[in-house]
Amino acid sequence: MSGTKIHLENCSKTFPDGTRALLPTNIDVSPGEILALLGPSGCGKTTMLRIIAGLEMPDAGGRIMFDDTDVSTVAIEKRSVGMVFQSYALFPNMTVRDNIGYGLKIKGIDRAKISKRVDEVIELCQLEGLGNRNIKALSGGQRQRVAVARAVAPQPKILLLDEPLSALDAGLRDQLRDELALLLRKLSITTVFVTHDQSEAMAIADRVAVMRSGKMLQIDDPRSLYSKPSSAFVARFVGAANELSGVASNDKLSLQTGTLTLPKTGSSQGPTTVYVRQEAIKLTETKGNGLEGTVVSKTFLGSSQKVVLSGVSDKLISVVTDPSTQCEIGQTFGLSIKTEDILVLEDQ
């Protein structure tokens, strides 16, 4: 796979007021890989992106490598990095072609070569027929593609995106998420992007790094991240796992209306919280011997149905069921949960 390897070694960032935005971090991004930095606001993901770009310098002892080249002290304009900002930062007084070719023009490249490269990128980013259009006349999705096109036109080694879809409305965001995933793979360029949207991260990235309070908690492919979270925070943040709190004793967890058999890893005694994915809970007509819950809301989602129940634990729990499952507000169901689907995790 083409692309440039990124290696961050002991990179941290402390701002002048003492705020530690990023704790010492080591990470490798393979050539051509798409990596998502995922986490809540203030977790350090944008700081890490800015350190890779050269917009921020890491604390003493931090090192950034692009392949075998140490770029830790290299200025951003010499790092061969393309950036797409949250606001896209396009020039409103320029046409699409002029926006895409701007970086090449600044480098003093011959007009004929600029025109040829702009044509290539317009085709790649599916912007045919829009070259002479003013930026103000474009839709949000078209502007997003122009921003990516402008960033990749100079053929950078690395592409960095900061919340690339957050400026779009919800309906358009889902559509362009898939388009962006396809485009980035066509480019075969090493890409790091920041997002707080787990669906966006899981759909686009080869690997996802989950961050919290300046620390990287887990980095893995989307499937492994979902099925094998390393901590309670990751389980809650990626996939919104249900929390079931009760009292553990002899591998049993006693809840409000019944007990769960804990997996062998569940050796905790006393007050304990475990986590279960929404789709791992099955509603049953059998009640009385196991867990029970009362329906407080239901949402039809087309291909599935989300049912929220009370009375199982001290928090409401959500269950994703077949859309044909008949249930009414106030109806009581039994709950079936397999032992292997119970996640016993510590928080970080």
Rank of each mutant, 00 (worst) to 15 (best):
E163Y: 12
S230D: 03
A235Y: 09
T95F: 08
I337P: 11
T261H: 10
L55E: 09
P323Q: 14
S199E: 14
T14H: 09
P31V: 12
S227F: 07
P229N: 08
E77K: 10
T265L: 08
T294L: 02
D341L: 00
M57V: 02
F15C: 05
V276D: 00
K315L: 15
P222T: 08
V121Q: 05
I27H: 07
G131E: 15
L253E: 11
L253R: 14
S139G: 13
L160H: 08
K107R: 15
A89C: 06
K45W: 02
S297K: 07
G82V: 09
G44V: 07
M211Y: 11
T261P: 00
R223H: 12
Y226M: 07
D206P: 05
L138S: 07
T261I: 07
E77Y: 08
E340P: 00
Q305T: 11
G266I: 01
F237G: 12
V320T: 14
A36G: 10
S139C: 10
D178F: 08
G214V: 09
A137H: 12
S115W: 05
L22G: 13
A89P: 06
E292V: 05
S304E: 13
M65W: 14
S304V: 02
E9F: 04
E285T: 13
P154S: 03
G171I: 01
G270M: 00
G3S: 01
P323K: 13
L260P: 14
Q326R: 14
E77S: 05
V81H: 04
T69Y: 09
L37Q: 10
C43T: 04
L345A: 12
F91C: 03
Q331F: 04
I317K: 01
T195A: 02
R236K: 14
Y88E: 13
L316I: 10
E123V: 06
P164A: 07
T325L: 15
E123F: 04
L187P: 08
L165Q: 00
S267K: 13
E56A: 12
L182D: 15
C11M: 06
Q86A: 07
V148S: 09
C11A: 10
F91R: 05
A240E: 11
N132T: 02
L335P: 03
T69R: 15
L253N: 13
E340D: 15
T286K: 13
L184A: 04
F85S: 09
T321N: 06
P156L: 04
S139H: 10
K338E: 09
E200C: 13
A203C: 07
M57S: 08
A151T: 11
S324M: 13
